[in-house]
Design a protein around this nucleic acid. Structure first.
Lengths: 126, 126
DNA sequence: TGTACCTAGTTTCTTTTTGATACCAACAAA
DNA sequence: TTTGTTGGTATCAAAAAGAAACTAGGTACA
């Protein structure tokens, strides 16, 4: 039987889920949380280049989607810990595969880019 | 030994590769090409909601990265076919896993969203 | 001959999103 | 008292995405 949901369909909820996950910051956050809960500022330090605003927004979205949980501890100053839920854990392997692909095939991609750019430079009109 | 590249590092090329792939349109294009070459307007029709501009831009980037190839045939009117390269093929399985995760876990995500929103509505000040 | 339509895009303009920066409250350490 | 920590929010400029019109080269129809 055909699948109930289809990511190619514009308004299918599965597409919306894919839209949420197909985001570099979301993937990096999920990957960073795979082994242990991590606090807000630690995430900010570890995931180089993320801004506080985007980190905050992305964490909220991932929490809303049930992929991670937010725990507040009444320490001084306050401690907020983010951890993967079971649902988030179920996605981590795929996220890792993705990150590893990027790390492993990077040289090939860089080479392809250089070739493309060289070709474009010698054929400016094409 | 530690990996040469690290997606958590801001300027690491691997991060840039991840940035490129962590894009819903790029993933949907790669997934659509997995079984056969597809033409521009066919992609536009199949991937619901993509605009011509973004499709054109994304195809160029993926071609530059060496993930797909662009072939022009001198038919009337002209035919342009996009196909996965070997490098693109090596990524397709991961892309599929992602899309399938979205389709399979969607109900859980929708439920989590509803719970989150209900809780937020009853705790407007929190 | 004019009109409409096909291909594969590009251009233009508006709206949305992102990123950088500053700011906030509460408290600790020097 | 100034500096630093926690976890954020507010503001504003820049970048990206989206919607729509437009291009070019040609076919088909009437």
């Amino acid at each position: 039987m055909p699948p109930s949901y289809n990511v190619y369909e514009d308004r299918c909820p599965a597409r919306q889920v894919l839209d949420r996950l197909a985001d570099k910051w979301a993937l990096l956050i999920l990957a960073r949380l795979q082994n242990e809960p991590v606090r807000f500022n630690q995430l900010r330090r570890d995931i180089k280049g993320i801004s506080q605003k985007v980190l905050s927004q992305t964490l909220k979205k991932l929490e809303r989607d049930g992929l991670l949980s937010r725990s507040v501890f009444a320490t001084v100053p306050v401690t907020v810990e983010y951890a993967l839920t079971d649902l988030g854990q179920s996605l981590v392997q795929t996220v890792n595969t993705f990150a590893h692909w990027a790390e492993q095939h990077m040289d090939t991609v860089l080479l392809a880019q250089a070739q493309y750019d060289a070709c474009a430079a010698s054929n400016p009109g094409a």
